[in-house]
Amino acid sequence: MLRRTCAVIAFGWLLCVAPATGAAQDLRKHGEYLFRAAGCATCHTNEKNRGAPLAGGRALKTPFGVFYTPNITPDPETGIGRWSEADFTRALRAGVSPEGQHYYPAFPYPSYARMRDEDVRVLWAYLSKAKPVRRANKPHELLWFVRYRPLLGFWKALFFRPGPYQSRSDRTEIWNRGAYLANAVGHCGECHTPRNLLGGMKERMAMAGTRAGPEGDPIPNITPHKTSGIGRWRESDLMEYFDSGMMPDGDFAGDIMAEVVDNSLRHLTQDDRRAIAGYILSLPPVDNPVRKEKKNTDSDF
């Protein structure tokens, strides 16, 4: 069964090459790898306040109010211990809870919906074996006009496109791998792509940065534009950044991007980091100056 699953996964996760012995362990490792790549812990572990892994409670301060991430450990009372795999799949694929309620896109399911069925399955296999932690969810504190969940149906009708990532036949396998990792799993666009007034992503400006990211702060343009993006970075620069957080000028990733590096990117294989880097540098360069100051200019007293 695992053999077949692995064969189906188009771009062979490294771990699937392993022989069928210790299959359960391989599955777990594969699940953990995906879990890292998807950065679930960044939001669902309240690291700053030393919260238990995946027990939620991290505050995400957005212009619409404060979201408190839920407990996604398998605790039956306060977590998702009573969920079936189908419930989980629906949450990621459709952004709908087991009770049929819409989720807010603060949970980046619009990206995760692009994940392949096999990967969602493996992720569930991993998550459902995590350590259960009892911690009741804290209700979000949102502005009145976004409190009513059914309205999210309209948002979804406008901006949410379900369905897994479709490989492009005019591109190489490694490019498709990078696109899949960046868009479906790593959800880079959730932060780096600017949004319209209603919170829908501006597809034409993919990864072009924004002055008001998810938490209201500026997010840099990572398209390969020479002046306003990262056009001067080479593939190896990006790979270094994904591994250590160091930029070509020796500056270090800060803020949430440091968490993305720590929790996700540094745990990937070198091949996967290369795939993401190659994909990012293949994007159309968009001139969108997000930074007020030009970086790397000399300081004058």
Binding site: D217, G245, M246, D255, E259, V261
Partner: peptide, 21 residues
Amino acid sequence: LKELQDACKACHKDFRKEEKK
């Protein structure tokens, strides 16, 4: 080197922002 890089990043994570609000 890796450990030092981690140390630089750890401080930037908590104390440096892309741009201050």
